[in-house]
Design a protein around this nucleic acid. Sequence first.
DNA 1: GAATTAATTGAACGTTCGTTTTATTATTAT
DNA 2: ATAATAATAAAACGAACGTTCAATTAATTC
Lengths: 214, 214
Amino acid sequence: MARTTGSDGEKTEAAVREAAVNLIARQGYEAMSMRQLAAEVGVQAAALYRYFPTKEELLFTLMREHMEGLGAAWERARPADAEPRRRLSAYVRNHIAFHIERRHATHVSNMELRSLSPERLTHILRLRTAYEKELRAILRDGADSGAFSIDDVGLTAMALIQMMTGVIVWFRPDERLSIAEVTATYLSMTMRLVGAKVESTEERHVHEHAQLRA
Amino acid sequence: MARTTGSDGEKTEAAVREAAVNLIARQGYEAMSMRQLAAEVGVQAAALYRYFPTKEELLFTLMREHMEGLGAAWERARPADAEPRRRLSAYVRNHIAFHIERRHATHVSNMELRSLSPERLTHILRLRTAYEKELRAILRDGADSGAFSIDDVGLTAMALIQMMTGVIVWFRPDERLSIAEVTATYLSMTMRLVGAKVESTEERHVHEHAQLRA
DNA sequence: GAATTAATTGAACGTTCGTTTTATTATTAT
DNA sequence: ATAATAATAAAACGAACGTTCAATTAATTC
């Protein structure tokens, strides 16, 4: 056989990406074979090389697009307002929403960094650092203006990101808590963690609704 | 050749464990070959099978002993005192100290769960759950007694563990902050996160010394 | 409808993998 | 000294790996 009826390059490439994200998230990059990925897509392994020159390039593409998507999402979500509490609130909401929606891709981007060549690793880390820098700026502004009470800005930023991204490890959309409830609780924890002095009306409203369990 | 002069089973096994932890932490379990591990130890691959029947059994042994060690460390560190703030403080200190001391082993235990067979995975997860349960108990007691102000105990426990364990991702012992400084800052963040009402004299003392950066 | 291009198959390449087997040497016990 | 045992080397196993290549068919263009 050769070309199959109804075959379409764009559809196949999209199917490869999706299957790859799921397989790598579940088994790990090294444990996923190109043959297994091809079988998942319903194609022979050789066909994959029409879309990605190597296995690592496939991994890199998935990671790069995920990180670029995260940055782009924050660009859209970033409030014009300069008020630190509102900016931090927007950052937390965007971060959690983005990562819950893309659990598998996040897993891949966080766990498979060591499978990248040095140059590609640097590329991904640069994207990540730029995104984290935004959080540090918010924390610093808030600390300077007295809106937050923070011991160490860099350390607090890492702690917050670690805490928020950790959601994808245990969160399952069909269980006890909804995305909105989880987000509200994490917002509340974040604000306390940075020692946010006074809350805006909007946020106090959210916190009240976050009293899920006494 | 066969047995080499000065060869000793106990020493070889210890060397295998140490090399395996480092290699798996750096490259991942799947990416580490038995031949590479053997070369690191200075031995032939076949010799490894005298100590571990399979590659997976080696991984499992490393993980199990790490998790058992974590539980045992907490047993020793757990205060007789029932006061929630003091118990939480002890939990945080023990957790951070243990994980910073065993960065590589922690990495392995957190990242390579998917390489375990279902039964072995269950075994490890049981150990982990038992350890996390201790934290949930502390948080619940504190919430019940009014010492803490917590929205959701389960969620807060996950957030705290995620945040604390995250230290190993970025902490390097030779950099800006000492272990003591990091621990102090994390203690401060933890107490704020759980809304600890009043601090003991001992802890306020620590917090004052944690003002590393304004 | 013929020529061209796009998409895929099937087979094969050399390499590496985890593991097993057998032989050999060092150490320990008798 | 000799026998038993512990620790390793060396070689080999079949299977699986990422990747390449030539052939073949479907879709598109002219």
